[in-house]
Design a protein around this nucleic acid. Structure first.
Lengths: 123, 123
DNA sequence: CACGATTTGTCCGTATGTATC
DNA sequence: GGATACATACGGACAAATCGT
């Protein structure tokens, strides 16, 4: 499972492992992950290490976390199409919780979208 | 400084505070931030809380951390301009270390850029 | 409705390793 | 060698939200 002698941090190893379980379908969208205590026991690492792992997956948009309930594999719908007209521009904001794409329109208005669900196209 | 009675987590309050010190120029590019122990004392929070704050700023590209040396305000050059022609599309990848903008060209080639230094424009 | 169990969120303290000066 | 400083990992404590009894 995890290699303690490796110089790769445990939370990174564990994140890779869980990413594979998700992409393979072993953990499907909507599924609840084992609780942090369970994960802590089965992988024999501390809860802070578990939480660091889950924080990374949450940042990547792979899971959602609900207080008092659990961590769930996210259902990623169709990527939202964002079209840029002449004079518009888009950038990525990493501030705040989740990364977001900020679109500044020619008329001065701005829109924001979750960065992991956006495809940007011209026209 | 920090409001302990607020329901906003301390590391979030502190991150906001440091972001302002950076954007205001109080902390200029190249400057070394106070050590984690110093910050821990001056803001009267634990070192893990300090580290959570600095990790956020590092992820946003605001600071760099060097082992054994300190945390430094990053010198952010001009944002790189990425132009999208018809048939091109751009998306954001959060997997791996730093978020990146992936541009898929009409001809099948792809380019990647650090997400925090990119402005996307049509044409 | 009340209570307790479960689960995540936040915060603290500590220890060890390693790189830099 | 010694002091300083960041990286990783462990543990415990309490709060807040949810759910079943």
């Amino acid at each position: 499972m995890l290699d303690r002698r490796s110089h790769v941090p445990l939370h990174v190893q564990l994140a890779d492992l869980l990413r594979k379980r998700i992409s393979s379908g072993d953990l499907a969208p909507g599924d609840r992950l084992p609780s942090e205590s369970d994960l802590s026991q089965t992988y024999d690492v501390s809860r802070p290490t578990i939480r660091k792992t889950l924080a990374a997956l949450r940042f990547e948009g792979l899971i959602e976390s609900e207080l008092g309930t659990g961590h769930f594999v996210r259902d990623r719908g169709e990527p939202k199409m964002v079209r840029l007209r002449r004079g518009d521009e888009a950038s990525v904001s990493l501030a705040g919780g989740m990364p977001q794409v900020v679109v500044s329109r020619k008329d001065g208005t701005t829109e924001t979208f979750p960065a992991d669900q956006v495809v940007i196209r011209p026209a």
